[in-house]
Design a protein around this nucleic acid. Sequence first.
DNA 1: AATTAGCACTCAAAAGCTTCGAGTGCTAAG
DNA 2: CTTAGCACTCGAAGCTTTTGAGTGCTAATT
Lengths: 345, 345
Amino acid sequence: MYAGLDERGAQVLRHVVENYIETAEPVGSRTISKKMGQNLSPATIRNIMADLEDMGYLAQPHTSAGRVPTGTGFRYYVDYLLELRKLARPERDQLQKMAGDAAFSSEELLRQVSRLVSTLSGQACVVVLTRLSSQPLRSLSLVPAGSGRILLVAVTQAGWVEHRLIEGEGGLSGDEMQKINNYLGELASGISLQQLRVKILHEMKREKARYDRLMRRALQMGARALEEGSPTEVYVEGRANILEQPEFAEDVQKLKRILRAFEEKSVIVRLLDRALEDGAIQVSIGSENPVEGLPDISVVASGYRQGDSRVGSIGLIGPVRMDYSRVIPLVEYSAKLISSVLGHR
Amino acid sequence: MYAGLDERGAQVLRHVVENYIETAEPVGSRTISKKMGQNLSPATIRNIMADLEDMGYLAQPHTSAGRVPTGTGFRYYVDYLLELRKLARPERDQLQKMAGDAAFSSEELLRQVSRLVSTLSGQACVVVLTRLSSQPLRSLSLVPAGSGRILLVAVTQAGWVEHRLIEGEGGLSGDEMQKINNYLGELASGISLQQLRVKILHEMKREKARYDRLMRRALQMGARALEEGSPTEVYVEGRANILEQPEFAEDVQKLKRILRAFEEKSVIVRLLDRALEDGAIQVSIGSENPVEGLPDISVVASGYRQGDSRVGSIGLIGPVRMDYSRVIPLVEYSAKLISSVLGHR
DNA sequence: AATTAGCACTCAAAAGCTTCGAGTGCTAAG
DNA sequence: CTTAGCACTCGAAGCTTTTGAGTGCTAATT
């Protein structure tokens, strides 16, 4: 259990971390002594704290101040000391109520969950949705879009819709369109856009000299539409919560860096990447997070599934001093919720 | 020309405003005297400034400080004194280059323009796109979306794509779908979604006892899909630029209010509403803007057209102390640019 | 041997004080 | 009407003092 620490040291560390999470101020020995029920005098606590500091779990901002947990300290806390609180009833109810609202499209659902989770946690909440193009399709259709254009509409089995405009085509009768549709739809059924792309290219080679002008054209169009990969969808809600954190409100420089980061989709995606790969909830504390230059933020994230493929992740972004015991269950539950709602679609 | 002010007063006001825009500091009489080429001594300038203060154009943060323009001062400046600088060549080139890139979808174009304009201006840039549902359609199609669902895809003549999922339908053969498509497409051609809705309801009444089950169903579906109005699209870029403004970096309270406002689509839409209605560029200074509770920001916005209907607007949101002479031409040009690019689609 | 009372010490933050200087308004002379 | 001159104002910046939370160490206690 308490790897590398004895019971007492671990308890002191726990109290320091929890107190610091609550107050955002350095924690002194008196406070801990009181919290632990006067069994140990402040002097004793001081000795223990000094030890913890030697071991790298605590640090002093300056000589005459209390202690603050280091990154390592938080890590230890999360790994060994954390008692996950159960997700409070009202919060669970709110989430479930929202999830039950079938009126939301899948996209809208993600945005709403993100928004609610950000409010509940008081942090910024991010939901990413990736690899649309790797999901199996439910249907693929061409739609006339007037003056030399055709719209390719793909609906995945999970209910995501994606469309791409194809330039410089058109001049197809409704009948021809219908034929192409049937042909492409057959080709696409059950496979992903990525796979479809490969399949189409293959098909084009095989039937190079194919007599049917229409089908050849269909293949060409398909290939063209699938050229670039589909973009990753990112929903960020509750950015402004970052301002509520005292550690950032003071230091405008940090604030700037963080808010700038939020403007770059790619940075956000990188922050949540780990959670996508792995099933379990991921906690990146401070400089552990995958983005250089943001050593002051923690990320608590979890992937969610659609059926049995991981298609995205939901995460909270906030200061290292996050209330992990509350926030981890929240993110875990939300990820499961999303998975289950998407599963039914 | 100089309504209510003599030439000299107007020039002094102009210099105060311009200096203040540049430095964000109260402006003193010495500075103005130098700027105006020593024709007038600081003492004279002081007299003039005192007059301007009486008239409400200037204010003193405290007795021994220089003057700061009031909202009214800025208003006068914008209305009578502003010399619009021509949009700098390189900026125009950048914008035009981007607009020429046909690879962007219309949505992507708006986002990219917003991003570039925010960089060029150093302010937050917002592009809103409304009333999709009032644009004439180019095509309307139903697409199978599997397990009891059908996707309605509408493409407007401007090239915007909108889709809505219809629940609890399906079980239609490709052939039936095709028939419905033809019917609805015919019904929809050239009119807007809004109008279509009315038309459909009308049609439903007229043909209440219509023998054709399929067509009746088509009408029902159409009516259902069009129930809620289409959402307004909002692209915000360069939020973090707000932090660059000294007036906000200091006052965290203001900062919070502004960034919170950015999280509410509806607030942003309200800020740019005026520009949508009116063709000309709109400048809302400080408390002139339509949102209560944000008296410290100015909005410079202009609507853009698609063909001959106004479909959206682009605007900058920043401190009252904006460089209007640079920023107004930028917004004007961008709006025209968007109009012209959309016009060609 | 572990704990703790006691005490000297440290140091940031807050409060108080002084200085500085940009800028003003007013007056009287040009 | 303009302007030189001057007394005056007041925030910002710098300095000093006070305060108090917190420490580390030592010696007494359990």
